[in-house]
Amino acid sequence: MAVQPEALARHRLSRMALNRMGLWLFLLSETFFFAALISSRYYLQGLARPETLNQALGLGITMVLLLSSLSAYRAETCIAHGDRKGFQQNLLATIALGLLFVVGVAMEWREAFVHFPPNTGFGSIFFTMTGIHAFHVLSGLLVLTLVYMLGRRGHFSAGSSWGVEGAVKYWHFVDVAWVFIYPTLYLVT
């Protein structure tokens, strides 16, 4: 007789609390990755920054990502209170805002390729940091899309919404990472 993974929840924590802890541990781990990225920026480039960086675009995509965090929060809150419609709408809004952010980064890259391509000092850091962050955004979008599809097929309810919670927590984490990356690349002097 094999042990079913779900059967393990009867200890001190519920399966949900266990999953939650696992996700937080994963995010803690990821924090170290971003810490490595950010410290590399200061190690290699100090506080230097090219004047050609598009400040308006940087501020814009930051706002978009912050806004997407709100809609993600709303989606999770809605499903936790049983509001399916609000959940679906807000999730869709989050995905749309996430895509907008990706488009913003792509526009930023087009300009950056001209002014400070990846084989320059600042370019190495800029493309790596934004690229790795964008990779996290894309994987977050993938998960949010899966959750959205499952939601449309009737999954998740007020009492059982771990999938939503996990996806949204990850999304917020991507936002937190950007909160630090944005000034590191655009603002510090």
């Binding site: 912050l66 709100l70 929060y73 809150t77």
Partner: peptide, 27 residues
């Protein structure tokens, strides 16, 4: 949630303004 977003946006705007005003040592 809306109030948190307002705070976040406000902070970001302040950051941006600080970067414009303080030409060095804003880290």
């Amino acid at each position: 949630g809306r109030w948190v977003l307002v705070a976040l946006v406000a902070l970001t705007v302040v950051e941006y303004a600080v970067a414009l005003v303080m030409k060095s040592g804003n880290l």
